[in-house]
């Protein structure tokens, strides 16, 4: 997608390139009308940015730096802190109790990002074969989970997954009593159950994104593929999927960030339990900093989580968008 709207002088790159000087105006006039040539650097720009930068700096960038500093300390939040060096980070690698949350997060990535993206692609392939009536309705409904507060989603799903909830009732009604269980209280099923909620939330997002992208794929490509005798499957792999590269990158970025930022849902549905079966980094940061008084360890986990998110986002951008962008 080359940006045709970009203005020529902005396209020179780093912005600070040598500005074109305006025509020299004789001294007196210049003093009276100190007009700049269009596009010349304007110091007043800093003034416009200042208020936003102040709030952003004080309440986001500065604390980010502080988290980095705290992660190098042993501190319980009350007494004097002691220097820890890299201890907190080393513990993240060696202590199984600190490593488990990251393993759980990896499982959740499958449910939050991989599964919704795959489902979205398959559905898109089916939905772009012909014009769907009532698409606005379907889009509105499928995207709905995205706008609900995660707290509300958690309360709704807790009642569905409860021992006497809708899911177990349905299973019993069709004679699958053996499968019914306390989904969120089961050691091995709690994590997939939380993941399934994530799949429910994110699938609509992926589908809506892909459908919008598929509509930008020129129809002629499909016609050409059909003339060449391509069936639905070939059509998907040769036309739809390549055409959706950018959308897949966006979908994976949004969903993987949602998967790793996953605090609200875990807090409401399981509080990390049973045992620590559903503890995730985002939840552990909160628990260790504000409940068990391990501020240093919590900070190290926060920094690591951030690094993981940034790294994964970059990998996705590289992998999916390829080198031609």
């Amino acid at each position: 997608m080359t940006d045709g709207t970009r203005r020529p002088e902005a396209a020179t790159g780093k912005g600070a390139a040598v500005p074109p000087k305006g025509p020299a105006v004789p001294g007196k006039l210049a003093a009276r009308y100190r007009r700049r040539a269009p596009g010349e650097p304007r110091a007043v720009g800093y003034l416009y940015i200042l208020p936003a930068l102040a709030v952003f700096g004080v309440f986001l960038l500065w604390p980010l730096g502080q988290t980095g500093w705290l992660s190098l300390l042993h501190w319980d939040g009350l007494t004097r802190a002691t220097w820890a060096g890299w201890d907190n980070y080393r513990d993240l690698l060696t202590d199984p109790e600190l490593r488990a949350p990251f393993a759980h997060a990896a499982v959740l990535l499958l449910f939050y990002a991989a599964l919704p993206a795959a489902l979205g692609l398959v559905l898109t392939a089916a939905l772009t074969r012909f014009r769907i009536r009532g698409m606005t309705f379907f889009r509105t409904v499928l995207f709905l989970p995205q706008v609900l507060a995660m707290v509300v989603v958690g309360v709704a799903w807790r009642s569905i997954l409860a021992p006497d909830g809708l899911l177990n009732d349905t299973l019993r009604a069709v004679g699958l009593d053996a499968l019914a269980r306390s989904w969120l209280g089961d050691d091995s099923w709690a994590l997939p159950a939380v993941g399934a909620i994530g799949t429910w939330v994110e699938t609509g997002l992926c589908l809506v994104l892909f459908l919008a992208g598929a509509q930008r794929i020129p129809r002629e490509l499909y016609e050409a593929a059909r003339i060449d005798g391509a069936g639905p499957v070939r059509e998907f792999f040769t036309v739809t999927l390549p055409g959706l590269r950018a959308e897949v990158a966006v979908a994976l970025t949004l969903t993987l960030v949602a998967a790793l930022r996953n605090f609200d849902l875990v807090y409401i549905t399981t509080s990390g339990g049973p045992g620590n079966a559903t503890s995730v980094p985002a939840y552990e940061v909160y628990r260790r900093a504000f409940e068990t008084g391990e501020v240093g360890a919590a900070s190290a986990m926060g920094i690591t989580l951030t690094a993981v998110i940034f790294a994964l986002t970059m990998v996705v951008t590289r992998l999916v968008e390829g080198r031609n962008r």
Partner: peptide
């Protein structure tokens, strides 16, 4: 256009993916 505008803009863009967990403590 002013010196450093791109760098300052990217500083804001970083906030798009920064998790709250990185600053909340």
């Amino acid at each position: 256009r002013f010196p450093g505008s791109n760098a300052l803009f990217y500083l804001f863009v970083v906030g798009l993916t920064l998790p709250q967990e990185a600053v909340i403590v």
